[in-house]
Design a protein around this nucleic acid. Structure first.
Lengths: 148, 148
DNA sequence: ACTATTTGGTCAAGCTGCTTGACCATAATG
DNA sequence: CATTATGGTCAAGCAGCTTGACCAAATAGT
């Protein structure tokens, strides 16, 4: 593997990821959900299965818990999530999606499906599976940090 | 293509891109270049071939020209680029990499090669070429916008 | 048991990186 | 050669994050 090949691979990977992010965002907006940013989408993804605490969200996003707390506050204000008392820890508060939050999550999924679908039209089903398999082999396990 | 598959593909793509960005950044820092952010790397990439004007950099990064101007100012201060008079337009100024800027660019390329090389050890050369081919087919042509 | 430390969360203040708005100098257009 | 468009900077403001201080509940130490 020469350097130039590594650069080329990096460039197309970053370009594809950037475009995907942008398209998902545009698709969500087009479906009527305004004032939501990609970071909110990553938050929703973490909340989708049973909710999470502020600290867990912070770890998921790779930010401080103060930042996560502010994000949650904003999402509460906009009606996407709500804070409930934590069933096992009186200090903690469980953040869960509201019905609006679920609707927005589904919109994001549809937008993702649209964007990916456009790729499928170019590559075909078979190649898409190959792509997914390859990426799955190299993607890290941890949280998806929107870090760049 | 079902929604769930699109989500899975999106997740691994974003995870891989996030990890790559982070590793490149860490690699650049490890090679002794401090105070440089991913956005600077995207700037360097645009400057590498013959330099660019502030307006061109702005378009490349997807930000306003004021923001691009500030970024250039910072890079000048840190010694990575310099402003030269534009040979054809007295209004414009051509921003070019200094020797330090070139060194930093090479460091980023090495870091990218390291990160990609780690994937090659998992996938093998053949699969890496397949991955690159697939991604090249779906990546947009325009500037790489670090947008999320 | 009860002190001491850790952990979950918020409040407050500050910084960084971007934005919008105004403006100047040069180029392109009629 | 007057008008408009373009490249660039200065200034002010804002959004999203950080660090620092703090409180309440849980956990650990003896």
């Amino acid at each position: 593997m020469q350097n130039s090949e590594a650069i080329a691979l990096s460039a197309v990977l970053l370009a594809a990821a950037g475009e995907l992010t942008q398209r998902i965002h545009e698709g969500v907006v087009a479906r009527g959900f305004e004032g939501v940013r990609p970071a909110h989408g990553f938050t929703f993804a973490r909340l989708a299965s049973d909710g999470a605490t502020v600290t867990e969200i912070a770890a998921h996003l790779g930010v401080t818990k103060q930042a996560a707390s502010q994000i949650v506050e904003e999402l509460v204000r906009k009606g996407y999530v709500e804070r409930r008392p934590h069933p096992e820890d009186a200090r903690a508060r469980l953040v869960v999606l509201t019905e609006l939050g679920w609707a927005c999550t589904r919109a994001a999924e549809e937008a993702a499906a649209d964007a990916v679908g456009a790729w499928a039209e170019v590559l075909g089903e078979r190649e898409m599976r190959a792509l997914r398999t390859l990426l799955t082999s190299i993607a890290p396990y941890g949280p998806i940090k929107p870090a760049w």
